[in-house]
Design a protein around this nucleic acid. Sequence first.
DNA 1: TTCATTTCTTAATCTTGATTAATATTTTTC
DNA 2: GAAAAATATTAATCAAGATTAAGAAATGAA
Lengths: 190, 190
Amino acid sequence: MNPNLIEYIRRYISISDQEITIFQSYLKEKKIPKKEFILKQGQLCKSRYYITSGCVRLFYIDNKGNEQIIHFGIENWWITDYESLINKLPSTLYIQAIENTEFLELPEKEFDKLCKEVPQTERFFRKIMEKTYIAIQKRIEYIYSLKGEDQFDIFISANPEFTQRVPQYMIASYLGMSPEFISKIKARRK
Amino acid sequence: MNPNLIEYIRRYISISDQEITIFQSYLKEKKIPKKEFILKQGQLCKSRYYITSGCVRLFYIDNKGNEQIIHFGIENWWITDYESLINKLPSTLYIQAIENTEFLELPEKEFDKLCKEVPQTERFFRKIMEKTYIAIQKRIEYIYSLKGEDQFDIFISANPEFTQRVPQYMIASYLGMSPEFISKIKARRK
DNA sequence: TTCATTTCTTAATCTTGATTAATATTTTTC
DNA sequence: GAAAAATATTAATCAAGATTAAGAAATGAA
């Protein structure tokens, strides 16, 4: 079904071909065009999503009415609103496709069954979460120890492809800076 | 052994008394005085720590030589350097007691054994990680949508006891602001 | 109970990056 | 391929909060 996902899972746990088949049987293949939403504010988030191709952004509308991007999701990323999913609260977030996007949906109800049938699933998601946590903690470090300009540089050199795929004002939003400031940075470089 | 921990575990998973006993058998009770370190930069972090009493801070030294606090750990919190623990890299962080602190140590080697003996352990830590992730993501939201003064207010109202337990300059460091700025905020209020 | 260390405050000045507003450029759509 | 929509740039002004430097309080230790 999805060779990337299989390789991805086996990077974290050992799992038989048969178990992989079970795992995959719980996933629904989906596809949405650019600008469509996987999740909107106010909805209950009921699934975990694995992006197979394309790109999405997870964002909220802040007190001033601005869209603030929390993070992006690209190929081979799991994305969801954990707060809504775990605590069964209406979501405060939006997940929107920036490109035409294909993804796999793992509904939380199925997730519980899957964990019973293939117990390593717990281990897999535990490890994914740890990896994700390391990344977000590193991000906190950057926020507090680098000034805006340096954060931009590091983001671009860590994600060079993003410059092509994502409009600059979204990168600005993700980095918590104004789009004008990014223009300024780039102008300084010329 | 530790009634808090038992209650804490049972909040996340169902586990028999016998399994609880096994779980506890893997934990080492430890105690350090104020100002001592659980972990220092350069060391390999080899354990997960559960604080039973007291308070610690997890921090790094930034490019300007300042101590930057990433987060605190108090009663009933798990704390570790995941990057060092998972990727087996020398730590870039310090974990230091702010008060005399008692904690339980779960060495990572034992962790693997424990997961085999009590498989729900995976589920437990997966859930802990999800909860932790929700908290840190919420923090990113605050950083980007509230100005310093409001971040301070929210921190204080969410953690009123901290004002007594932790020096103000450490709260400033956690919030990524200068101690002078916190004085200024407080002066404005009078 | 004094000295030393740690923590906190005040105030002046300076920097980073936001805001505003106008214009330019690129991309999409019909 | 023209019009519309989305994105990017430029420049002037402004504000939040850092930095510096000094002194004041509080805490701790001998």
